[in-house]
Amino acid sequence: MSCIINQLGLNTKVPYHFLFYSLTFGGTAFYSFVVSPLIFKELSREEFSKVQSKVFPCYFKFQIGAPLIVGLLTPLAFCPFSVGTLVASSLGGILNLFVFEPKCSVLKDERNKLTSINKDKKENGEPSDEMAALNKQFGRWHGLSTLVNLVSIASLGVYGLTLARGLSKLK
């Protein structure tokens, strides 16, 4: 079965689909590529961490649910490829919310504890061995989270291209 847009005539899902898809793709891309880098540059590490710890649970829940809603509203005929892109995007949110964010939070808490008891640095100002190990672990987990987030956003982009391709067949 090919991915073809349903007739646009009386299908009332179409405008809602386009609005919600735009919000989903635009919102996730804007937060990831504009807002987060800006607040990272402007805030201290501690302030940035506090903001992100409040935003991320909501962001990841949106990343899970929004592609599913887009799928329910889609004007595309059933196509495993387009469904797969939306599922991949939701899976990214699931991994981030239930695996990567909790692990990164634990590691951030451990780093904060070292800082609070002044065991985060050696006498020469370099990170202590324990802090260096935590920083390395955090970098690894955060890197995986970032990669999963990029895959989630890219999946939404591929879905949008599939949608545009279906629209171009209507001409």
Rank of each mutant, 00 (worst) to 15 (best):
S82P: 09
G26P: 05
Y59R: 11
V14P: 15
T146N: 09
S168V: 04
I5M: 10
F20K: 06
I5T: 06
G27L: 00
E130D: 12
L68C: 04
G125L: 06
E46G: 07
I5A: 14
E46P: 03
L19D: 05
A88S: 13
K13L: 10
L156K: 05
Y31L: 04
C3F: 08
F60T: 03
A88N: 06
L150T: 10
S105Q: 12
L8H: 02
L170F: 02
Q137R: 08
I4G: 02
L150K: 13
F56D: 04
R140M: 10
T12S: 15
W141R: 01
F78V: 07
R45I: 04
L23D: 04
P75M: 05
M131R: 14
H142C: 01
W141L: 03
Q52C: 14
F100E: 02
E101Q: 06
K122I: 00
F20A: 04
K50Y: 05
F138V: 01
G71W: 10
L38H: 14
Y16E: 01
S168F: 00
L86Q: 10
L134Y: 06
H142E: 02
N135A: 11
K41A: 15
S128D: 14
K13S: 15
L10T: 00
Y21S: 12
G9R: 00
L73K: 04
G92I: 06
P80A: 15
